[in-house]
Nucleic acid binder design. Sequence first.
DNA 1: TAAGATTGACCGATCAATCTTG
DNA 2: CAAGATTGATCGGTCAATCTTA
Lengths: 166, 166
Amino acid sequence: MLMQPGFPDDTPVPAERRRAWQAFFEAHAAVVPALEAEMEAEHGLTLRWYDVLLHLAAAPGTKLPMHELSDAVVITKGGLTKLVDRMAGAGLVARAAVPGNRRVTLVKLTPHGLETYRRARLTHHRGVAQHFLDHLSDHERAVLEAALVRVRDAARPRRPDVSPAS
Amino acid sequence: MLMQPGFPDDTPVPAERRRAWQAFFEAHAAVVPALEAEMEAEHGLTLRWYDVLLHLAAAPGTKLPMHELSDAVVITKGGLTKLVDRMAGAGLVARAAVPGNRRVTLVKLTPHGLETYRRARLTHHRGVAQHFLDHLSDHERAVLEAALVRVRDAARPRRPDVSPAS
DNA sequence: TAAGATTGACCGATCAATCTTG
DNA sequence: CAAGATTGATCGGTCAATCTTA
């Protein structure tokens, strides 16, 4: 989707350059659903749920305030409220209050959530290797990482918060 | 999302390899929303709508049967029915019957749809250059394309139709 | 009977509005 | 009032069931 398989084009030279974008876009469209399907089949998790478990597992005390978690997994606050509802219903996470502050709600990994994450991580790592890394030479991998980090940093939405100085 | 920023990891060596995947994933997550936002701002189109216009513009007679279009833009048939409803409501496409066959419905680009596509394409090409291609050297672009075509072909869902032989 | 398209139930997201608390 | 979280309306998708036609 979103790419010309080789259609007539008003701008013949740029078209050749754009094949790199096409490969990039289509590789993503091919690999991510594969990872998603494996995660679903082996653990009954969407990639989104896995992502939540990942960030909580990595957080100090395996817990995070709602607004930080929504930032980490790139979802709106409203969306996260409902997502946490569902995951709590599944016993993977639980809400907790923070003592001194009654505004924030913490989301904490349950033991079951942590164990689920540990098992799901194997599936994810295997999938990434199998569907992506194993098809790249060491040189390609190095080039790709360097180039795409540059692309990512250039395009990344800037935090509209404090100015970089000060 | 979906990546460890640098968290403790049980498998230190693979973690380094996986940074390439991280860069790939995050670059996609950074660039695609940028393209989407520009398309929305300048033409009021989602990437999905643009994709439909693209495939119809490239098709012979600027028209395609529903089932072929659903395949091209990677959406279910039910999803396409409603998508075409909306786009027809916006005057970008129109349904048409095929003379000899009353089962298939053709989707045809309207003049307005074609003109919209032509203008939107400039935005898309500019965005791809600006957010992606311009950050790559010629060498990187070549390596990236070759590698990611391989990844894409390995992971791509096989057509469960006729066998490749015959 | 199978292919093509549509419909309806559902699901998970966004967005704007609201409630509560610092 | 601003920050944090929740709620309700809406949107666009999937999936399964249905209708029509080759």
